[in-house]
Design a protein around this nucleic acid. Structure first.
Length: 301
DNA sequence: AACCAAGGCAACCGCTCGCAG
DNA sequence: CCTGCGAGCGGTTGCCTTGGT
């Protein structure tokens, strides 16, 4: 392995915060000549810094294509989802966040998002509820209703995070072997939605015809072509693949959690055992509880 | 106004990886 | 294959700011 190339302060190299004058020198040099070899750059640019320090300053601060300022909700969600999937691979996570630096994302995670997850009762490392064993609350509560609700939230959020992470991963996999999607894929997906659901009966009875139609439209609008292709080619049921937007809204209203749009989820090709559905994971009751509190028209129990 | 603690963030450090010779 | 170098990555540090007392 290569020798460490860290800066040595005693050799005359300056350390610590960069001054505006240093920034200007570095910026002017890189804009004119490109960075080339970072090791030789400081001397050429007239900087008393080591190349590594220059590279870092450029990458994390001076680059023109950097977005600074508050992270959007969308960016928050992306970071959380990708962290659940990738762990502390900040460069990989940052690759999905245009104009953000890995250092910034890393700092943001440690200073904000990690704490936010912990406050909500999730382990920031595993992204799983801290005190809940999947499907059963590990601790008792004096208020069964409250305990039950919290349990529902935690389970639902856990599954949501896992599912969204899977969606991101599969999007990446499919991008590698991308094939253009076409109307056949859409119509095939629609036929699944309109057709018989092997686990729960006809989907239009389950959700109502209007919902099925609207959900079909969401498919076209909200999901990347590879996901739709996956659905159509495998012919899995609606429940295997998606949760419905309005169910998400129910959970939002009743449990304070956030599921704002349909998301690709539990297709068996996305990590669940073959043919698995919500019921297999003890989630059907959660799903139904959400519907009881906020009935959706046309659903037959 | 002064002090202190906590949080945020820029920068550093040490390590690994990839590549050229 | 081995070695050395440059680049990149993730963990950590420490300074600065902010908010509370």
């Amino acid at each position: 392995m290569g020798k460490s190339t860290h800066c040595v302060a005693s050799s005359g190299m300056k350390k610590g915060p960069w001054t505006p004058a240093e920034d200007q020198k570095l910026l002017a040099y890189v804009q004119k000549h490109g960075h080339g070899n970072w090791q030789s750059l400081p001397q050429k640019a007239g900087l008393q810094r080591c190349g590594k320090s220059c590279r870092l300053r450029w990458r994390n601060y001076l680059r023109p294509d950097i977005k600074r300022g508050n992270f959007s909700l969308q960016e928050d969600q992306t970071i959380i989802q990708l962290h659940a999937l990738l762990g502390n691979r900040w460069s990989a996570i940052t690759a999905h966040l245009p104009k953000r630096t890995d250092n910034e994302v890393k700092n943001y995670w440690h200073s904000r998002l990690k704490k936010r997850l912990a406050l909500k009762g999730y382990d920031p490392v595993t992204h799983k509820p801290k005190n809940i064993i999947f499907g059963f609350a590990s601790g008792s509560t004096d208020d069964p209703k409250t305990g039950s609700n919290l349990n529902h939230i935690a389970q639902w959020e856990s599954v949501r995070l896992q599912a969204e992470a899977r969606y991101v991963r599969d999007s990446e996999l499919h991008k590698q072997a991308y094939h253009p999607y076409n109307n056949n894929d859409i119509s095939a997906a629609s036929s699944i939605l309109l057709g018989h659901n092997k686990d729960f009966g006809p989907t239009n009875q389950l959700f109502g015809q209007d919902h099925v139609n609207s959900f079909g439209n969401h498919l076209a609008a909200d999901f990347e072509p590879p996901i739709i292709s996956t659905i159509s080619s495998n012919g899995s049921s609606l429940m295997d693949c998606f949760f419905h937007e309005q169910v998400g809204q129910c959970f939002n209203e009743n449990y304070g959690t956030s599921i704002t749009k349909p998301f690709a989820a539990v297709h068996h090709n996305m990590g669940f055992k073959n043919g698995a559905c919500l019921e297999d994971f003890g989630l059907w009751e959660i799903f139904m509880q959400g519907k009881k509190d906020c009935p959706i028209s046309g659903i037959s129990m």
